[in-house]
Amino acid sequence: MNDIAQSLRGWTPDDPGSEAAVEFVTLASELTEVVSSHQVGNERFVVGFNWDTTNGPPGTHRAFGLHASFAPDTGRCHVRARSTPTFGWAGHWLVGRGADPRAVARYRPVPENPYDEPPEYRTEGLYSGTHYGLARPGGRTTRLIEDRVRRCGDRYRILRSNSAYPSFFNGEREANFVLLHDRHPQAVSRRFVIQLETITVKRTTYAITEGGFHTLAQARHWLDRIDARAGTVPPLPVTDPATGLAPRGIPAPVRGRATPVQSAASVARRTR
């Protein structure tokens, strides 16, 4: 993050929030990793990764967005930072503040030797799934979902985010989820969405899968069925990656006994 810290030198923060954000990127510049950065006029937009979160509890928000605007006539800057569960959601926050969604999506390549290891000790992939800042989208579906997230405006409301399972259980993959309420008018039959982001350690990539549920209880029940120690998850209901809606021809889920997922009443009894 040294280039971002450098760009803020000589500018005076114009309020306490800006002071806190500038302190974050200047005093801990070695603990932050720039994933994406672009400038529009006197405004700069950054998607980043906070290395300080790697020792935190599973589910800690590791991505963040940073927005800085500069007033050359006064020498002052207005800076805000927001931690988010994923890079896509950091981009969403920045787009809401005027960032170009295409520029936000241009992630910097991962350094060839990110850990500065001598050739004889080079590690294949990541040391850990917590090193999320060195992973990049692994396929078209993931990029489509991220692009929709960045451009979705107020369509979704984040209800919860957490770890699905950490990489230290099996060393190969790590997964985190975001539970959403979808306010799209065509999502009336699947208002609750789970986005599961899985990091593959050896490939330094992550993949996002997504599914919509009729009720919040059904979505929570799906989360309860994740086998964290085995690193396995049940199949998600089919969702179109570009729209986030059920594909045409897929019947809407039915409330009650006809649904393949446990009812809200039975879930409540099980969790008492």
Rank of each mutant, 00 (worst) to 15 (best):
Q6G: 12
S7H: 03
R9W: 09
G10L: 12
W11V: 07
T12E: 13
F24E: 02
T26V: 10
L27F: 02
S29M: 14
E33S: 07
E33Q: 09
E33R: 10
V34L: 04
V34Q: 00
V35E: 10
S37Y: 06
Q39S: 11
V40K: 01
E43K: 08
V47L: 10
G48P: 01
F49H: 13
D52C: 15
T53H: 00
T53I: 11
G56L: 00
R62K: 15
A63Q: 01
H67K: 15
H67L: 05
A71D: 13
D73L: 06
T74D: 10
T74V: 09
R76G: 10
R76F: 07
S83V: 07
F87N: 10
A90P: 03
G96A: 04
A99W: 01
R102K: 14
P109S: 07
P111F: 02
E112A: 11
E112N: 13
Y115M: 00
T123M: 15
G125S: 06
G129W: 02
T130S: 06
G133E: 11
G133P: 08
P137H: 04
G139D: 13
T142E: 04
R143H: 14
S161E: 03
S163R: 13
Y165G: 08
Y165W: 12
F177R: 07
F177S: 04
H184N: 01
V188Q: 14
F192C: 12
I194G: 05
V201N: 08
K202N: 00
K202S: 06
Y206C: 10
F213T: 06
F213Q: 05
T215N: 08
L216Y: 09
L216M: 08
R220I: 08
H221P: 01
L223M: 00
A230E: 14
V233H: 14
P235V: 07
L236E: 00
P237K: 03
A252E: 05
A252L: 06
V254N: 02
R255D: 00
G256F: 07
R257G: 07
Q262H: 03
V267R: 11
V267S: 15
A268H: 01
A268V: 09
